[in-house]
């Protein structure tokens, strides 16, 4: 007896959002019209894209295992960006301006803009820029950065419901993508997108960061919220159909299970392999939930995710990233 699959046709599709413009080689994400990885019933013109996280100052809190591959370039964003691209094969780079936080270096918006300029000069891929966290400082820093990188199509991370107006205006004025962050809540994700749309932000130039927890730290909660966002989007909800970005690396490497050294936890095994597995498991789950942009820390996670994507989508066609 043969089994006949009846492909589900959805009313809606995910918006295709192109990161990078001007001097960047653009990367487009989203555009699928089926549930994540349901390649048997939907068309997915773009695979999930992988970004590696680099920082403006030496990220002292990073686990040893996550620092290893970046030895010598931590705190040198331009050199780190080159390595991310040439050695590690990232599609994108996320520059985390953690040093602009008043308690972690207090670097000025001018210094941040110089860092962004240096990375833009060093690589030609699109850039995600993450500020120090919601608040007046983030607005100052990202506004200056946006001005410096006018027309380069940065993804500015991130606007939230309590404080979105400045970044919405800045993104529109300087031609950038805006990442809309919500606290693992589908309704707030939608509310923020509505507010952004009302503030004249083009919905084709936003990404949703649904906020995630690492494996073991609420990942399943994020998973179901992402799943609901995706179901709503495919059902035709125009305020929830932006592609989703997840900071998988940051969250995974926060977990004690990822960062504890083998000396601290001898029974947990080799810390390098353990950390990478933790990040990998987190990222895979998020891809299954619908993440289109994954920000990672360890290049080996990225390499292994690529292998997995090839299994799911088939070998990449030469000269294009079309999945089917």
């Amino acid at each position: 007896m043969s089994l006949e699959l009846k492909p589900k046709k959805w009313a809606g599709a995910i918006r295709a959002v192109t990161l990078g413009s001007g001097s960047r080689k653009p990367v487009t994400v989203g555009g699928g019209n089926g549930l994540p990885l349901h390649t048997f019933e939907g068309v997915f013109p773009h695979r999930p894209a992988f970004a590696l996280e680099i920082t403006d100052v030496d990220p002292a809190r990073w686990a040893e295992a996550a620092r290893g591959p970046w030895d010598g370039v931590l705190g040198s964003p331009a050199a780190a960006a080159r390595r991310a691209l040439r050695e590690f094969g990232a599609d994108l780079v996320m520059l985390h301006l953690c040093g602009t936080h008043p308690d972690r270096g207090n670097r000025t918006p001018e210094e941040a803009a110089a860092d962004v300029r240096a990375v833009l000069d060093a690589v030609d891929v699109p850039l995600i820029v993450k500020g120090p966290g919601a608040g007046p400082r983030q607005n100052d820093v990202l506004a200056r950065v946006a001005e410096e990188a006018k027309g380069e199509g940065l993804a500015l991370h991130s606007a939230c419901q309590e404080d979105y107006k400045t970044l919405a205006a800045v993104a529109v004025a300087y031609g950038h993508i805006l990442v809309a962050e919500s606290p693992i809540d589908m309704n707030i994700a939608k509310q923020l997108n509505i507010l952004l749309a009302d503030a004249s932000v083009d919905m084709n130039r936003t990404l949703i960061d649904p906020l995630t927890g690492g494996l073991g730290y609420g990942l399943e909660y994020t998973y179901s919220v992402m799943e609901r966002i995706r179901l709503a989007a495919l059902g035709g909800d125009a305020m929830l159909n932006a592609p989703m970005i997840c900071l998988a690396g940051e969250e995974a490497w926060k977990a004690k299970e990822a960062k504890a050294s083998s000396r601290q936890e001898p029974r947990w095994g080799d810390e390098r392999r353990r950390g990478i597995h933790w990040e990998l498991a987190t990222a895979l789950a998020l891809i299954e939930a619908g993440a289109e942009v994954l920000v990672l820390r360890h290049p080996e996670t990225l390499a292994r995710l690529r292998t997995q994507l090839d299994c799911w989508f088939g070998d990449p066609a030469p000269g294009g990233d079309s999945c089917r």
Binding site: N187, K190, Q191
Partner: peptide, 14 residues
């Protein structure tokens, strides 16, 4: 709670 958050918007999230 989900309904409450959805309704905490003018006039409603959906």
């Amino acid at each position: 709670m989900d309904e409450f958050v959805a309704a905490s918007f003018l006039p409603h999230t959906s």
